[in-house]
Every structure is written in C-alpha cells, then in structure tokens.
Computed example of a mutant assay.
Amino acid sequence: MAPSPDLPVDPDVDLHVPADRGELAAHPGTVLGVIAAGGVLGALARAGLQTAFPHPPTGFPWATFGVNVVGCLLIGALMAVLTARPAGPLLRPFLGVGVLGGFTTFSTYVVDAQRAVTAGAPGTALAYLAATLVGALLAVWTGDAVTSRLLLTRADGAAAR
C-alpha cells in the first residue's frame, strides 16, 4: 500500500500495519509530548544507573552495556506485545521511542569506546564494542521470541478453557 498523499509519513510507522497507521491519527504535538515525557523517564533511569555504577576510562563500562542490552530486550518484548495486541496510538511512541529510546544510549557506547582507546585500553574498547553489538542484537531477538511464545502459550491456554 503506497502512502496516501493526505497521510503524514512517519519513518517509524509501518503503513502496511493498520494499528501502526492509527498512530498517524494522533495529533503530532501529542505524539511528541508523550515521546518527550517517556524520554525523560528513560534518560533519568539510565543516568541513575550510570551514576550508581561508574567505571574508569580503561575499565569495561558495565552500566552502559547493561542498559543497552536490557533496553534492547525490552524493545523486543514490547514489539512482540504490540504486534499481538495492538494498543492505543500513544503507547508505542511513549514506551518504545520515549522510555526505551531515552534509556538506551548508543552515543555513550561510542564515547565509552573512544575514551578506552584514548586511555590506552584498545582491547577493552574492542571487546566492549563487539559485546554490545552482539548482546543488543541477541537481546532484541530474545525479547521478541520469548514474549511471542509466552503470548501464544497464554492465548492457547485461554482458548482451551
């Protein structure tokens, strides 16, 4: 389905999915507001974790690594839930783009790697870059696969009753 000229185009919305198209009906200011509110919550949670678990420039940035992997796991789970059970037009922008987008931090990931290299720990930087990439991709896949299976099992159990 080609986008209609009267529909705004949002690169984060799949126009082939009716539930995604529903997000376009919400007022753009409202969508931006819920994204901003979610982003504040996610960024505050991330900043709190990074402050609670600091690392030296040559050390492995466990807090940022954990934030990114857990955030990706939750993004995978959220997408599975929203695929199985479409929700209101503001839930995905709030949770997915806002909260989880503000929580995950791939810009800090790059800065952490650059600092490790500058501090004389290129091996740590390389290990961190690779582990985050692999961990994030596996986390998204796992979040989606496990949540989809749980939702299917739950639906099958409800249908059998």
Rank of each mutant, 00 (worst) to 15 (best):
A2C: 01
P3H: 03
L7I: 03
L7P: 04
P8A: 06
P11S: 13
P11T: 10
V13F: 02
P18V: 05
D20N: 07
D20R: 01
D20L: 01
G22E: 15
A26T: 09
G29E: 07
G33E: 08
V34T: 00
A36T: 08
A36F: 13
A37C: 03
A37W: 04
G38E: 03
V40C: 04
A43V: 02
L44P: 02
A45N: 08
R46Y: 12
A47D: 15
G48M: 14
G48W: 14
G48D: 14
L49T: 14
L49I: 14
Q50R: 15
T51M: 15
A52Y: 08
A52L: 15
F53T: 15
P56A: 15
F60Q: 04
F60D: 02
T64I: 00
T64W: 00
T64M: 02
F65K: 08
F65L: 07
G66P: 03
N68W: 04
V70S: 14
C72K: 11
C72W: 10
C72N: 12
I75M: 15
G76D: 12
G76E: 11
L82W: 01
T83D: 10
A84E: 09
A84L: 01
R85C: 02
A87Q: 11
G88D: 10
P89N: 09
L90V: 10
L91I: 14
L91A: 14
P93T: 05
F94A: 06
V97I: 12
G98W: 05
G102Q: 02
F103Q: 00
S107Q: 00
S107T: 05
S107E: 01
Y109Q: 04
V110I: 05
V111D: 05
V111I: 07
V111A: 10
A113H: 02
A116C: 06
V117K: 05
T118H: 12
A119D: 05
A119W: 00
A119Q: 04
A119I: 06
G120K: 01
A127Y: 14
A127Q: 06
Y128C: 03
V134P: 09
V134E: 07
G135W: 06
A136Q: 09
A136V: 12
A136D: 08
A136T: 15
L138H: 02
V140E: 05
W141F: 15
W141V: 08
W141Y: 13
W141E: 01
T142Y: 04
D144T: 14
A145S: 13
A145E: 10
V146Q: 03
R149N: 10
L151F: 11
R154L: 11
R154G: 14
A155D: 12
A158L: 05
